[in-house]
Amino acid sequence: MTGPKSIISTLQRHGALWPLVALGLIWLVIIIVNPGFFAFTIQDGRVFGGVIDIFNRGAPVALIAIGMSLVIATGGIDLSVGAVMAIAGAVAANLIVGTDLPAPLIILAGLGAGLAAGLLNGTLVAGFGIQPIVATLILLVAGRGVAQLLNDGQIITFQNEAFAFVGVGTLLGLPMPVWLVLFVLAAMLLITRRTALGLFVEAVGANASASHYAGVPVRAIKLTVYAIAGLCAALAGLVATADIQGADANNVGLWIELDAILAVVIGGTSLMGGRYSLVLAVVGALIIQSLNTAVVLSGIPPKFNLVIKSAVIVAVLMLQSPVAQAQLASLRRRFTA
């Protein structure tokens, strides 16, 4: 069977139906409050349009959600991503201001800082057996302090066209952050699905003890996912820093860990670990960003922002809950019977 019905059932089997429906509904609301928002225009060789804006703005959360998905799939969590963003940004900004290093080396240094942070988290979790929420809480608190120390408490601003390209550049008509999300998503899909890493991550998350008995290197897998999460967070931090050509250690990535966790959960990955979907985590990030945009466009006073945002997210999560799914299924049966 082909046709709309089979597409819907395929989406449903992969848990993609409700996130996509939610995204569609939010976009519908945006079109109603601002019909011109999604219009595409091409200007100076760059495509402008609402969808691209949302993708571009949602890039940091999407990047972090990709790394976070893997961590959550192993049954862990990484609260330190926002602080790691700040560290990577601070490292990059200080190198730009203080040295003559070329941009690629500066980017590598920023990513290196993120990798180091991720390995620290991973060592605490896998090596010392500290609960992930506690282990990463350490860096959540200390990491931003380190970044502030690097910046001497200031916002370090810089002029560096090559580095700024990461945040504001355009490649083949699309903003660089959009490309970075697509690239990281493709790379991680390749790394996890074309090797056995994805299988091991899911096995560790679903049953760490049985995986250990089967010879899966449980600790190494955990270390790896935290390292990947650190890299993703660092990249997000570089994008955010390049975006405003300044490293704002106090504010960059503040609370972003919660948005990223939410994106992963909206994408249907259980916080208990096990099965995960990187693509749906990115969809989750787009949902959150679309919601932010919709709230701004709607002209509702800012004090209602958080209330509206949380109400919509609660609705999405409830629709995905097993209880609601069972109810819907029985409704559908009655309807078709």
């Binding site: 299988l199 091991f200 049953n207 008995y213 089967a214 096990g274």
Partner: peptide
């Protein structure tokens, strides 16, 4: 508790030990 990885498929469970020995 220590044998099956319940959420994973029959195929993935069967392949798990061999895959673990081959490396990721």
């Amino acid at each position: 508790a220590n044998g099956i990885v319940g959420e994973l498929s029959v195929r993935e469970n069967i392949a798990l030990a061999l895959q673990a020995r081959r490396g990721w």
